[in-house]
Design a protein around this nucleic acid. Structure first.
Lengths: 234, 234
DNA sequence: TTATAAAATTACGTATACATTAAAAAATTA
DNA sequence: TAATTTTTTAATGTATACGTAATTTTATAA
C-alpha cells in the first residue's frame, strides 16, 4: 500500500482496503439513502462508473447486489433505477417492521437479561428526552433508531436484524423527509420507556403488545403525513 | 440464434433467452437447493465457470447475487462456500417463518375474501390428505408448501412473501432430508384445515394463534429430529 | 527434522475489447 | 403528414488479458 492510498483509506472509513466492488456498493448505497441519487432516477453503468472513478465491472457488480437488496432495479438499456416507494409499499414494510420488532421485544422479555444489556437502550431513551428538550429532531431520530435496533439485538435473532436492516434502508429516506412534518414525538418516548420496562420485568406479552401499538401508531401517523402532503411516490 | 441453440432453449425452460448471469443464478440456486452442490463445500470461480460452460464474469455476478440472498459466502481465494445451517440457524429461520406466516393468516382473515380465493389452498389440503393415504411424503411436502405459500398470498403483503421465500430456500434442504424421518404429519392436515376455516370465518386472532401453534410444533419436531440424528451442520 | 525464507503458482479483481441488440434517428413510402 | 423501414448509435453482456496478492511449494538454515 502506498502512502497516499493509506492516508486516503484512513480518511475514508475502515482501515482495511476493500475491493472496488464493495466501495461502489457502500458509496452508492449511501447516495441512495441520502437521496443524492434521487428515487425514480435512472443511471447508466457508464455514468456511475465515471462518477465513482472506476470501470464498469465493479459498478455492475455493485448494482446487482443493490438490486438483490431491494434498493434498485436493473433495467437493461435504461440504466439502474433507484426504486421509489408508494404508500402501499410503506404499509407493507411497516407491517413487517412492526411484527418482527414486536417479536423481538417478546423474545427479549423471555430472556431475563442482565442489567448491563440495557445500557445502550437506556442511553437512547435519555438521548431522545434530551433531543426533545433541545427540539433537535435529527438527534431524536438517531437515538430512536438506536433504541429500535437495540430492541432487536436483545431479542437475539440475527436474521430478524438482517430483515429489519434491509427494510429500514428502504424507508430511511421517507422517514427523514417527514421528520420535520410530524408532531413532536412525545408519546414515542413514553412508549419506549414502557416497552423497556416490560422487557426488564419479563412481561413478554405486555412488551410485545406495547411495542406493536407503538409501531402501528407510527405507521398510521406516517401514512397520514404522506397523504396530507401528497407524497405518492417517494 | 442457431438451430441448436434454439432447440436447447426450448428444451430448457422458458422461451425467452435469459442472460448467462441469470441462467447461472438459476442453475446454481437449483444445485444448492437440491444439494448437488453440497452444503459446506467450496467452489472456485473457474470450476463453476467450466461447469456452466461460460466465462467467469457471469458466474461471478451470479455468486454475488446468491451471496446477497444468503445461500453462499464468497471467500476470496477459497472459492464460493455453500452455506450450511446449525440448529440455531434453523431456530432463527423458523422464528421468522412462524411470525410472518401467522401475521399473514391474521391479515387474510381480516379481508373477507371471496370463496374463489381459497380454491388453491383447499386443493392443497385435499392433496395432502390424499398423499397421506398414499404414503407419498414428497407429494405431501409439495402440497404443504403450496398451502403455506397460499396463506401468505392471501395475506396480501408481497414483501412478506419475499422474506419467506428467501428463508424457505435456505431450509428446503433440511426439510427434505428430514421428510422421511419425521412422524406421519396427520396433525398438520388437521391444523391446516382449522386455520383455513378460521380465515374464512374472519376470525383473525384464532387464525393467527392456530397457525403459530402449528408452526411452533413443526419447529420443535424438526429441531428434535436434527438433534436425534446428530445433524449439527447441514 | 523443524522452522524460516524465497520462489512459484494461481485465484481473484479489474480494465478493456468486442459482439449483440435495443433504442433512437434518419430515410423512405403511403 | 403519418407510418414504415432502414440506418445509426450506444448500452449492455460476456470473454479475455493481466496485475496483484494470497497461497502453496520449494529451498535453505537452524
Amino acid at each position: 500500500m502506498t502512502v497516499s492510498e493509506k492516508s486516503f483509506d484512513t480518511a475514508s472509513k475502515t482501515s482495511k482496503s476493500k475491493s472496488n466492488t464493495h466501495q461502489a456498493l457502500e458509496i452508492l448505497r449511501n447516495m441512495i439513502l441520502s437521496n443524492e441519487l434521487a428515487s425514480g432516477s435512472n443511471h447508466l453503468e457508464k455514468e456511475l462508473a465515471s462518477l465513482l472513478g472506476m470501470s464498469r465491472t465493479p459498478v455492475r457488480e455493485a448494482t446487482l447486489i443493490l438490486e438483490a437488496q431491494g434498493l434498485v432495479e436493473v433495467k437493461p438499456r435504461h440504466g439502474v433505477r433507484i426504486l421509489s416507494l408508494s404508500s402501499k409499499d410503506m404499509a407493507e414494510i411497516y407491517e413487517i417492521l412492526t411484527e418482527l420488532e414486536s417479536l423481538s421485544a417478546e423474545l427479549a422479555a423471555n430472556k431475563d437479561l442482565p442489567d448491563d444489556e440495557f445500557l445502550i437502550a437506556e442511553k437512547a431513551i435519555r438521548d431522545m428526552d434530551q433531543a426533545l428538550k433541545n427540539e433537535d429532531r435529527e438527534a431524536w431520530a438517531e437515538a430512536d433508531e438506536i433504541f429500535h435496533s437495540e430492541l432487536v439485538r436483545l431479542g437475539g435473532n440475527k436474521r430478524i436484524a438482517d430483515v429489519i436492516d434491509k427494510y429500514n434502508d428502504q424507508v430511511r429516506r421517507v422517514r427523514y423527509l417527514t421528520l420535520n412534518l410530524r408532531p413532536t414525538p412525545t408519546q414515542s418516548n413514553e412508549d419506549h420507556r414502557n416497552v423497556l420496562t416490560a422487557i426488564r420485568e419479563g412481561k413478554a406479552t405486555t412488551a410485545r403488545k406495547l411495542h406493536t401499538a407503538h409501531r402501528i401508531q407510527a405507521k398510521t401517523m406516517l401514512l397520514a403525513l404522506l397523504d396530507k402532503y401528497g407524497f405518492h411516490n417517494i
